[in-house]
């Protein structure tokens, strides 16, 4: 299973907010989409999922034009993990995960006992089996994010699109969720994950391929270690940044030291 975009143009209605976008995602790959707010990350994801019509270029899922596939066919191949949200009704966490089975059951069917088993397994795989019977709306942001990732697992789609999975989380949960994402996409699991993030360190920690998006265009693409240089990060985010190597050999991104407090207004 492989999603391929060539020279893709994205936007809402007729208003283009990005163009010339090319990317590939297949099994055992992690792609990290970096870029400042408003650079088109969410629009790109919605277009990749076929939720928003593309404005130009080609977008295929295993060679098939995604616009010609049914929602069911797309959902069996690509799962979507939105940012943790609060639904209007008090569903159990298990109910929410079971919704991932929708594309696998008949149009008029209810999830079966086997589907429930798969949903429980998905919760277990993320280490949150104890949340199954809890009210989803009352879970913490980190727990809800994990439930939504479990739902993507229950969907059994080889490709997973995650929109800023750590954006609204506190420091500890951010690391915990990132750790689970790394486990999901470990080599040999047969899954491909594309996620957006505000934190270049996450791309470095995941050893991901990086796509840096700025002003609706891809400004850099390649392995995190080679693409994420101090100059490039400074250019993307508009603040002075450096990349340093820790004692253990990992690379981390740091704000460059400012000479004085006089720059603060």
């Amino acid at each position: 299973m492989r999603i391929a975009a060539r020279d893709l143009a994205i936007g809402h209605g007729r208003v283009a907010i990005g163009s010339g976008l090319s990317l590939d995602l297949g099994p055992d790959e992690i792609v990290c989409l970096l870029g400042p707010n408003g650079c088109g990350k969410t629009t790109l994801f919605r277009t990749l999922l076929g939720l928003l019509p593309r404005l130009g270029g080609r977008l295929t899922l295993d060679g098939h034009d995604i616009a010609r596939l049914s929602r069911r066919q797309v959902a069996r191949s690509v799962a979507y993990v939105p940012q943790a949200h609060t639904p209007p009704f008090p569903f159990d966490a298990l109910d929410v995960v079971l919704m991932g089975r929708t594309a696998r059951i008949g149009a008029f069917a209810q999830p079966s006992a086997a589907d429930r088993g798969m949903a429980l397994q998905a919760l277990d795989a993320l280490g949150i089996a104890d949340l199954a019977g809890r009210d989803y709306a009352r879970l913490s942001g980190g727990q809800r994010q994990l439930v939504l990732i479990a739902r993507a697992l229950a969907q059994e789609a080889p490709l997973i699109v995650m929109d800023e999975p750590t954006a609204s989380l506190d420091f500890g949960n951010r690391l915990a969720v990132l750790d689970r994402i790394a486990a999901l996409a470990r080599p040999g699991a047969g899954r491909g994950v594309i996620l957006s993030t505000h934190d270049p360190d996450q791309a470095l920690a995941l050893g991901a391929r990086v796509l840096a998006l700025s002003g609706g265009r891809i400004v850099a693409a390649g392995p995190a270690d080679t693409v994420l240089t101090a100059e490039r990060l400074t250019a993307i985010y508009g603040v002075p940044l450096t990349v340093e190597r820790t004692a253990s050999g990992r690379r981390v991104c740091l704000p460059a030291l400012q000479s004085s407090a006089a720059t603060i207004t």
């Binding site: 939720l51 069911r72 959902a75 939105p82 009704f89 919704m99 991932g100 929708t102 008029f108």
Partner: peptide
């Protein structure tokens, strides 16, 4: 007949579509 899909629709149109509806 649509009792399960109505649950999924209550998560919002976009998510329901991403889940295959």
């Amino acid at each position: 007949l649509l009792r399960w899909r109505i649950n999924v629709l209550s998560m919002g149109d976009e998510e329901a579509r991403a889940l295959g509806i």
